[in-house]
């Protein structure tokens, strides 16, 4: 191969590589947007039936229950309007806490419960020392206490 052809090939490979990367990203973005479903939508029955999707919200304080001697657990996730029951079997990330942000990947089970196969925890952009957080009256733990569930709106299509 002549040097010029080699250069053309190299430039071509770079272009193809960037194109693949761009396609990949756009698809990932699309997935992220399309298959991230609001809790209220899930409870209204608007969710992909035949595939996995993601939900996000806060873990409702006081709803986390773990099965004795197994990794099975259940809890409720809220978008501060509606609360959706979730079951999961596995180890949760260290930041998984009541009243804190959570992202769950999975699909709807038969009984209006979201069956998660992956749990991810979110945290906010605030960093502070434990003592400081304590003196701020642990506001973080109580984020979901004030949620007023509009059950009529949420359970419209509940099976």
């Amino acid at each position: 191969m002549k040097p010029r052809q080699q250069r053309m090939l190299a430039v071509g490979l770079v272009a193809v590589g960037l194109a693949i990367a761009a396609t990949f990203t756009l698809r990932a973005f699309k997935d992220n947007m399309m298959f991230f479903v609001e809790i209220s939508d899930v409870m209204a029955g608007n969710y992909p039936k035949e595939r996995n999707f993601r939900i996000g919200g806060l873990v409702v304080a006081g709803t986390v229950e773990r099965e004795e001697g197994s990794l099975d657990m259940s809890f409720e996730v809220t978008d501060t309007r509606c609360a959706l029951p979730v079951t999961y079997s596995g180890v949760v990330p260290d930041l998984f806490r009541e009243g804190q942000g959570v992202v769950a990947h999975g699909r709807m089970g038969g009984n209006g419960t979201f069956v998660a196969d992956k749990i991810m925890a979110k945290h906010d952009e605030e960093y502070m020392a434990p003592e400081v957080a304590e003196s701020l009256a642990k506001h973080v733990q109580d984020q979901t206490k004030s949620v007023q569930y509009l059950s009529t709106e949420c359970n419209a299509n509940d099976s």
Partner: peptide, 26 residues
């Protein structure tokens, strides 16, 4: 340890930073 995942393919921050690396390589 914090989020419970090494990498999320659908996450915009992680993907755009990875694309940044590709731009440098390109």
């Amino acid at each position: 340890p914090m989020w419970g995942t090494w990498w999320e393919w659908a996450d915009p921050r992680m993907m755009s930073e990875l694309i940044l690396l590709f731009f440098y390589f390109g």
